[in-house]
């Protein structure tokens, strides 16, 4: 029982980690909280559903094409939601346009795929016996794929030249511009990567939670993970999110109705006793 809860907690935490990573990448690159990230997450579930069942693609073909579509959607999102408002002097402008975009995406999805939740069959059907209890294979797939994704993101930003250029542009756009780095390209790429990353998260949870617009609510837990981990820190976002997943999972032992309340109670406690989060973000280092 405890082991099962731990695995479920880590798996869900990994999903929240993808969401908070998506947010943190954008916070660092453009300094804006993207409130439509949850909708991009949900869109991932719909796009993969569409490619798998409506177009009928095999998995090996579906994944790269879905990633490309989601990446391009992220770029489109950036040029329509962020770019026209980037020079606005009121900092809430872009947040409001993100909120607007989140309704537009939700409604658009309803127009295309209808109001009813859609069923996405798991990659591997059935359950696995761990420690005497049954567990869906999907949780293990989630953990494996998320570790791979987080590893790839880490490689991109820390080990690859282009990733370091994106980091540099995020830290000081003006200086990067003087060296010949195009802000348009780095910001667009960051939006694309962020959208693809959370979109894959949507695909991963679809077999467990159905394909529906309500999937966007996962964003709240991603936010909680990011705040607990330390606003603006990549490592913090991952650790904080996994912690949120585990807390949420073990909360079942106390109550099933107030599971979410317990998660946000922990968030509030963290905000009171450790508002900087577990790991100090690079944003605060800048000061």
């Amino acid at each position: 029982m405890y082991l099962q809860l731990l695995i479920v907690g880590i798996a869900m935490g990994m999903i929240y980690a993808l969401l908070s990573l998506g947010i943190v990448l954008l916070v660092r690159a453009v300094g804006v909280l993207n409130f439509a990230e949850g909708q991009l997450f949900m869109l991932g579930a719909y796009v993969t559903f569409c490619l798998t069942y409506q177009v009928g693609m095999p998995l090996w073909l579906m994944i790269p094409i879905a990633v490309v579509i989601l990446f391009l959607f992220g770029v489109l999102f950036m040029f329509s939601i962020y770019w026209p408002l980037r020079k606005s002097t009121w900092s809430a402008t872009i947040i409001i346009s993100c909120l607007g975009a989140s309704s537009v995406i939700s409604e658009l999805v309803k127009v295309i795929w209808g109001n009813n939740p859609l069923v996405y069959a798991p990659l591997i059907k059935g359950t696995v016996k761990i420690g005497g209890v049954n567990l869906e294979y999907q949780y293990l797939i989630i953990i494996a794929v998320c570790i791979l994704m987080i590893f790839l993101i880490q490689m991109l930003f820390d080990k690859m030249y282009v990733g370091r250029i994106m980091q540099a542009a995020a830290q000081n756009k003006y200086a990067a511009g003087l060296l010949g780095v195009s802000a348009t390209l780095t910001v667009a790429a960051t939006y694309g990567i962020s959208a693809a990353l959370v979109g894959i998260g949507g695909w991963l949870v679809a077999p467990l939670f159905l394909v529906r617009t309500g999937l966007s609510d996962f964003l709240l837990k991603g936010f909680a993970g990011m705040v607990i981990g330390g606003y603006g820190s990549v490592k913090g976002a991952v650790i904080g999110s996994i912690l949120v997943g585990i807390i949420e999972s073990y909360a079942v032992l106390l109550t099933t109705t107030y599971q979410n309340a317990i998660v946000f109670l922990v968030l509030i406690v963290f905000l009171v006793i450790k508002p900087d989060g577990l790991i100090k973000g690079k944003i605060s280092e800048k000061a």
Binding site: Q167, A168, A175, L185, K286
Partner: peptide, 25 residues
């Protein structure tokens, strides 16, 4: 206006972007 969160070496490397390109090796 250095890039505060990157190392000295990484800062210098990014100076090459104008002739090396984004995927430069």
């Amino acid at each position: 206006q250095v890039f505060p969160g990157l190392t000295v070496f990484e800062n210098l490397e990014i100076g090459c972007v104008n002739w090396r390109g984004y995927f430069g090796k």
